[in-house]
Simulated scan of single mutants.
Amino acid sequence: MQVSFVSADGITDHAPGELESLLARTDGFVWVDVPDYDDDAEALLAGPLRAHPLVRQACAERNFVPTVHAYERHLFVILHAPLTGEGGHVHVLELDEVIGERYLVTVHGPRNPVVTLEDATAETRAVRARIEAGRLAPDNPYELAYTVNSAIARRQSAAVREVAARLPALEAEVMAPDFRRPEGLLEQLFLLRHELSTARTMAAQGYDIQSRIQSLDRFVPGEARRYARDLADQFERVRNLGDGEMGFLVGVIDLYQTRVTTKMTVAMERLAVIAAITLPITAIASIYGMNLIGNDGTDVPHLLLVLAVMVAMSLWLLRWARRQGWW
C-alpha cells in the first residue's frame, strides 16, 4: 500500500499512519494506491476514510461487472481493463476507485496469480510517473481518477488495435487459393473474436458507468461530471472501434465457413459421381462374376458383352452427372 500526497509541488510518499494529518491539509489531496487488498487496507478504509461497508466488501472480492455507487462522503467506481494471456485467454484486470473530496483510493484486483503486479498496476504507475516528471499536475481527486480511467480506455483501445493488426494475415490465409488445414485457422479466428469481444464489452460497460456518473448531480460536483462526460466519449469511441473490427472479423469468418462448406459440397458431389459410376459395375459383377470365369473354361463372348454393358452404363452415368453440373 502506497500513501502519497499530491500537490502543486508534485507527489510525495508518506507512512499510512500520517493519513489523518494529510487529509487535514488544504494544499493538495491524498492518493492511496493498494496493489493487493489486505488487512491494512481494510483498516484504512474503515478508519480514517470511513468507507461504506459495501465498498470495503467490493474491494475485497472479485467483481466481473463494472459498477458505480454514490455515497454521501465518496463515489465508488469499478472498471476493467483487458490483458491478453497465453492461448488467447483474456485476463480481466479490475480497478476499484474510492473518490472523495480530499482523497482517491485505487485498489487493484483481486487478480489471477499468473498476472504480474506490473501488469495489474500499469495505469497507476504510468500516471504516477507523469506526476513525478512534472508532466501532470492534477488539482483534485476527480481529475486524477479521470487520468487513470483515460489510461484504462487507452488499454482497451490498444487491445482492439492489436486484434486489428493480426486480422489481415488471417484474412490472407482464408482467401489464399491453396486452402489447407482449416481447423487451426478457424481456432485462431475465434480466439481473435474472443479477444475483441472482451475489449469491446469492457468499453461498453465503461461507457454506461460514466454516463451514470453524469446524472449524479447530488453526489458528484460539476467538474467531475464533465470528466465523466469526456470519459464516456472515450469509452464509446473504443466500443465503436470494436464494433467495426467485429463486423470485419465476422465477415472473414463467414468467408471461411463458406469456403469450407463449398469444399465439402464439392467433395460430396464427387463421391456421389464415383458411387453412381461404380454401382452398376458392382451390381453386374456380383451376379455374373462367378459364372463367366471358371477353371474349366471362360465364356468369352458373354464376358465381353457384360464388360461392354458395364462400360456403357458407366459412360452414360458419367455423361448424365456432367449435365447435372456435378463435376
Rank of each mutant, 00 (worst) to 15 (best):
A120I: 04
Q188C: 09
R155K: 12
E162A: 08
E183P: 00
E162V: 03
N140T: 07
A145Y: 07
V174K: 02
F179I: 07
F179D: 01
A133L: 08
A151W: 01
D119C: 01
L136S: 00
V127M: 01
A153S: 13
L186D: 06
L170W: 05
E187H: 12
E132T: 07
E183R: 11
R130Y: 05
T116K: 06
L144M: 09
V115Y: 10
A176N: 11
L167N: 07
S157Q: 11
A169I: 11
R128C: 10
F179W: 05
R155F: 07
L185G: 01
Q188E: 15
P113G: 02
L189T: 02
A120W: 03
A172G: 02
P182G: 01
R155H: 09
E118W: 06
R181M: 08
A164Q: 09
L117C: 10
S150G: 12
V160M: 03
D119V: 03
P110S: 06
P110K: 04
N140V: 08
L189W: 01
M175K: 08
R135L: 11
A122H: 12
R111M: 07
E123I: 14
A165T: 06
R161D: 14
V148W: 04
E123L: 14
R180D: 15
R166V: 08
R111I: 05
V163R: 03
A165I: 04
V114S: 12
V174A: 02
P113W: 13
A120C: 05
E123G: 13
I152T: 15
A165N: 02
G134V: 00
R181A: 15
A164F: 09
R135M: 09
R181E: 14
A176V: 05
R128P: 08
T121Y: 04
L167M: 15
P141L: 10
E132H: 04
I131E: 00
A137E: 14
R130K: 11
R180G: 10
E173G: 06
E173I: 12
R125W: 01
L189V: 03
I152A: 10
A126Q: 07
R180L: 15
P110W: 05
S150Q: 13
R130T: 03
M175L: 15
E162M: 07
A137T: 15
R130A: 06
R161M: 11
R135E: 15
A133E: 09
S150C: 07
P141V: 13
R161C: 03
V115H: 10
L185S: 05
T121E: 09
G109F: 10
E183C: 00
V174G: 00
G109T: 05
D139C: 07
I131C: 02
V163S: 02
T116Q: 04
L167V: 14
R125K: 11
I131D: 02
G134C: 03
H108T: 10
F179E: 01
E132Q: 11
A164K: 10
S157A: 09
R154M: 13
R161A: 14
L144D: 10
N149K: 08
A137Q: 14
R181Q: 14
T124A: 14
E183I: 06
E123S: 15
N112V: 09
R128I: 12
E171L: 08
E162K: 05
H108N: 06
A151Y: 02
R128S: 10
A133N: 07
M175C: 07
P182N: 02
L186N: 12
S150K: 14
